[in-house]
Design a protein around this nucleic acid. Structure first.
Lengths: 259, 259
DNA sequence: CGTTCTGTTGACCACGTTCAATCAGTGTGG
DNA sequence: CCACACTGATTGAACGTGGTCAACAGAACG
């Protein structure tokens, strides 16, 4: 199996990083709900903002790391692999998601994270995380809240892979991503669909199928007039039938935390 | 499919609840690391301590709840179901685990929790959770830490169900539970095994198999001299081979948070 | 001692995998 | 500009893991 990502690529430090104070992403990121007057010094915990190319390995499975990141924009995958090379994608990370937190920050990473598209990320030194959380209970609460939401998503994936046939898994994944993406940018009309840079192999790795079977199943969904994928965009053609098929609950992806 | 649990059973309020101050469970629960002098008033957030029978539905999937709980002792399952009645167990909850937290505390539960054995639980009103976390950043940090560990466990289950064959899934589950249980009570010798109250149907629901196939696969593992199950106890006969088979990483279940 | 729950066994089947060939789209270099 | 390579999608045939259904055995329990 060929390597699916590249390491040691050049990453570019943003010369004019966004300021938390007027960052549009913040409302769905870790600093959501932080008081205006605290934002400037909270921002000091950020080490830098980076521009990262596609297929860059932000975290390597089994190796320790120096930073955690807020994903400012772009797509990334959080995955684990088995020794025979098979890969399971745990979650697709999108704008605002917090990447790389785990119970023991100095332990080796239990999973890998790789960008799918070019991304902008805000890097926070792991060594200062504990201070940051202790300094601001609201941020610690927000981290718990975010983790709970990621857990909810992970659990729906577990339900899908463990107990649903291929069609339903695929339908569920499309709906989840569609709703998450739409709420990143509610302004876009439904008929324009959403950005969708995934290869079928990545879809399969997310729902526990092979690329071959994804291809076959996807064709069924297309022929049934449920979805359309064209030009790296995803269109939901028949939301009602698709939701019924997937038993999809939009509240799992809804972003409605306190404040 | 018959109902797998009972509701509206009598639960019993403990007349002499344990005090957090000298609770042996606390070192792996939410109040781990809380300063001695704060424990008494933190304990005030606890509404009551209950004795709950086996097969009691602590949380019902899709319904709102009034409390969150610390599981003081006993076994519980966290699960989701599909409309056709199939069930996926997300995680087995053991002594010290925090039950029922989710991003939006007033929203309907995204999963159900049912006791497998009789359990003792400490109930905290959901309405006061936010206050409690805001009042003590250390508790908010601990909640984030615990959630991160639960997430890590959930992710290993997702890897198993998505990408491993039956034998390996089963081996992994046994090792995970064995290690979690042993660190609850490290005093017990290896040859005595660990408590193991699971039916094969529950094992199957946890790793995405049917009870029939669990039966067959389990016999293989037994005949290969890897494990033994007898009298509701689990014995790991050949740790090395079993770990190699499962690709098990003990650090996932290790409890080593700050403080 | 019967009833109920849990585990075992067998036969059959299907969903999804595997492997391989082919095709389409996209750059890339001569 | 075309030839070539490379990547991702498609299709087909054969296979296998695990599911389904049903009958039965044993253990647990009232």
């Amino acid at each position: 199996m060929p390597p699916r990502n590249r390491k040691n690529q050049i990453i570019h430090r943003c010369q004019q990083p966004t300021r938390c104070k007027d960052c549009e992403v913040r409302r769905r990121a870790l600093f959501r709900g932080v008081a205006e007057e605290q934002l400037n010094w909270m921002q000091e915990y950020r080490h830098a903002q980076f521009e990262v190319p596609a297929r860059y390995e932000l975290f390597s499975e089994g190796e320790p790391a120096d930073y955690v990141y807020t994903l400012h924009d772009g797509w990334a995958i959080i995955y684990k692999t088995v020794s025979n090379g098979k890969r399971q994608i745990m979650r697709f990370a999108l704008s605002g998601d917090f990447l790389g937190f785990q119970a023991d920050l100095s332990a080796p990473m239990g999973y890998g994270i790789t960008t799918l598209t070019s991304c902008r990320v805000c890097a926070f030194p792991r060594a200062r995380m504990e201070d940051m959380l202790a300094a601001n209970a609201r941020v610690a609460m927000r981290l718990a809240e975010m983790n709970a939401r990621y857990m909810a998503i992970c659990q729906t994936h577990l339900l899908c892979t463990g107990r649903k046939p291929a069609r339903e898994r695929l339908a569920y994944l499309f709906l989840e991503l569609y709703h998450r993406l739409r709420q990143l940018n509610p302004a876009i009309g439904e008929e324009e669909g959403v950005e969708f840079p995934l290869a079928q192999e990545e879809i399969g790795d997310a729902i526990g199928l092979t690329n071959v079977h994804v291809s076959r199943t996807l064709q069924e969904l297309k022929q049934d007039g449920l979805v359309r994928i064209a030009g790296k965009r995803l269109y939901i053609l028949d939301p009602e039938r698709l939701q019924a098929l997937a038993e999809f609950d939009p509240s799992v992806v809804a972003e409605n935390g306190y404040l």
